[in-house]
Design a protein around this nucleic acid. Structure first.
Lengths: 201, 201
DNA sequence: TCGGGCTGAGAACGTGCGTTCTCCGCGGTG
DNA sequence: CACCGCGGAGAACGCACGTTCTCAGCCCGA
């Protein structure tokens, strides 16, 4: 009954390989080799490669948003001076998103946003994958909107910050640099201050 | 001696098909069918599919930047009230980039940024393609930097506007909407005004 | 101990596709 | 008119890969 275990192992392999090399260049046999899960079992768990791709994106979405939220909530900290309670100032919480992007970009093996990459690769040919990408982006955007709303700032700002974040992800991938996160953060601060001056909380 | 013609026809087909359906899902035979150029000739002109992909990105890069520059220079106008001379105020020229993005997003068949899509698809497996993407993005960024510099505004602003533009492209693709261009333009205006107030020309 | 169903290993199958080869007609030179 | 080389059409080749099948081993109940 370790089919739950096999599933996780398959998804671990899928995540490593799909994210690292792209989806189309990874064969089901590679998944089997990396995961140790036999082809037969793989096809029991995921009736087609596309299902595995969708499941990979789904699981990554949950974890990605969780890690972001944990950082914003201040549960995780390692930036020099440790401050105890985490981010409580609602505007600081908004800007913390960009700090977290910088951490993400610096992780070894960072190769851009898995959803943007998948969309470029399969958005035109696989509706389920395109749907998964849209769902993830919508969720991220709504999370941002929540943070911005909590700070008493308008929805328009949250949309603009979203664009900055997306631009930073793409650029960090193409330039293979974490710098775009900091630049986006500085731009975000200007926008927040600008909106905050007219409609502060 | 119409091998120049054959080359253009091949590139026309490549652009239509690669951009519309993604690169990997288009076969050389599709290129042949659409272009009317025989396989033999195709392989004379482009010794491998990868060469065709690179040539497609190269030609599109030139045209894309040309169309952008033409719009910014004010040679092309159709937005309600026609004004004669084009964009001469250097700050207006900067913001015109975002107007142009909106026009681009609204073109029939728009499917996002060809380079970002290609990067997601082949960035991990094809160094020539990845290089082409980096070259295009660098050129766009430098163009923006020129506009910003001409307006007497700092380089940091240009980097931030670049991130907004990239975010708008990705988001317009995923959401299949032209709205991100306008949003990015409004954010850009705030940033320009912000930098312009402290270091205006 | 016997038998049946599940599992893993891996062969096999079918297809798609990048690339090359074959064949045939045609246009220009002695 | 004979010859030669080039171009087009498309068959052929080789390989990769998604998916399925075969077969042998093993765990379980009677």
């Amino acid at each position: 009954m370790d089919s739950a275990v096999a599933r996780e192992q398959a998804l671990d392999a899928a995540e490593t390989l799909f994210y690292g090399r792209g989806i189309q260049s990874v064969g089901m046999d590679d998944i089997r080799g990396t995961s140790g899960v036999s082809l037969k079992r793989l096809y029991q768990l995921f009736p087609a490669k596309e299902h595995l791709v969708v499941a990979y994106l789904e699981r990554r979405d949950i974890r990605w948003r969780q890690r972001l939220a944990e950082y914003v909530d201040g549960d995780v900290h390692a930036d020099g001076a440790g401050h105890a309670g985490g981010h409580e100032d609602p505007r600081r919480r908004v800007l913390a998103v960009f700090d977290w992007l910088g951490r993400w970009f610096r992780e070894p093996g960072f190769r851009g946003c898995a959803w943007i990459n998948s969309y470029g690769e399969l958005g035109a040919t696989s509706e389920p994958v395109a749907g998964q990408v849209r769902a993830h982006k919508r969720a991220f955007k709504e999370y941002l909107a929540g943070l911005v709303g909590d700070a008493g700032l308008p929805a328009e700002l949250s949309e603009q910050l979203y664009l900055l974040a997306e631009g930073a992800m793409v650029t960090a991938a193409v330039e293979q640099s974490a710098e775009p996160a900091a630049r986006a953060g500085r731009a975000a601060r200007i926008l927040v201050d600008s909106y905050g001056a007219t409609a502060g909380d």
